[in-house]
């Protein structure tokens, strides 16, 4: 079972101004094949939680367990897509996608086959030999998704992957991601601060509080896909989640104003 078990996770950052509790009492079980969005304002610890699952920053207390193993380090079983794309600019599109497989010492023919399939899947066929600098943001993020898919990891972690894209490209990639998710059955943990994006995509939305980051609402989305953002049900949920997120956003804003006053 590729469940992600998050047990009593706490994360404390030591800063010159004192300790900051970024995450507190997080308990979540993410089921295999589930599409889960972590939603909240900046500073709510959603990226911190994602990084803990990725293994970049292990929690200060509690544990994250996948397939019976405690997560202590990053690994290709949990491919991550970053907001900044993080493509290797010195590699072509094809080389970027192939890199994870080369590390695993796969046969060249097998790598080629996989890369070609992924180029097809993400409509990147004509860009195989281009460098990332020649691609638009949307295309870059397609390559980043393909690079993670090449690992064939059961879990995909996505850190505001579409945050830097314009609205149309964003919707386009959201649809692509849903198509891929339905086809390949990945478990996806997706960080966003866009309420609409979370409702459009997720099976389940975890709304987080601002400092310390805790679970404010664990909301299942029971709407058939493709979801219509103009429908009544969509907007009822959007209003409800918007209220929750704005409460936290307000606390975040107050905190910032306080800090500014101290300065």
């Amino acid at each position: 079972m590729n469940e992600i078990l998050i047990n009593n996770v706490e994360k404390v950052f030591k800063t010159p101004g004192g300790n900051v509790v970024a995450l507190k009492d997080i308990n979540l079980t993410i089921k295999e094949g589930e599409f889960v969005c972590l939603l909240g304002p900046s500073g709510c610890g959603k990226s911190t939680l994602l990084n803990a699952v990725a293994g970049f920053q292990p929690p200060s207390a509690g544990e994250i367990v996948i397939e019976g193993k405690k997560i202590l380090a990053p690994g290709p079983d949990r491919g991550m897509v970053f907001q900044e794309y993080a493509l290797f600019p010195w590699m072509t599109v094809g080389q970027n996608i192939a890199f994870g497989l080369e590390i695993q010492k796969k046969e060249k023919a097998e790598i080629d086959l996989t890369v070609n399939q992924l180029l097809d899947l993400l409509h990147l066929k004509d860009f195989r030999d281009r460098f990332p600098k020649d691609l638009s943001g949307g295309m870059r993020q397609r390559v980043a998704i393909a690079r993670v898919l090449a690992l064939d990891s059961p879990i995909m972690l996505m850190d505001e992957p579409f945050g830097a894209l314009d609205a149309l490209t964003r919707r386009n990639l959201q649809d692509e991601l849903l198509r891929i998710w339905e086809k390949l059955g990945k478990t996806i943990l997706f960080v966003t601060h866009s309420i609409e994006e979370s409702i459009y995509l997720a099976d389940r939305i975890v709304v987080m509080t601002y400092r310390p980051g805790t679970v404010k609402r664990d909301q299942y989305v029971d709407m058939p896909r493709p979801r219509d953002p103009s429908s009544a049900a969509f907007n009822d949920l959007k209003r409800e989640l918007g209220r929750l997120v704005m409460e936290e956003q307000q606390r975040h804003a107050n905190d910032e104003l306080k800090l500014a006053a101290v300065d």
């Binding site: 990053p74 290709p76 991550m80 970053f82 890199f99």
Partner: peptide, 23 residues
């Protein structure tokens, strides 16, 4: 971000050096 992406893909230290840091 390149180091994080490479660690996520599962590179060892040597590959990190030759294929990521050096280029």
């Amino acid at each position: 971000i390149f180091l994080r992406a490479a660690r996520n893909l599962g590179v060892n230290q040597w590959t990190m050096f030759t294929r990521v840091i050096l280029p």
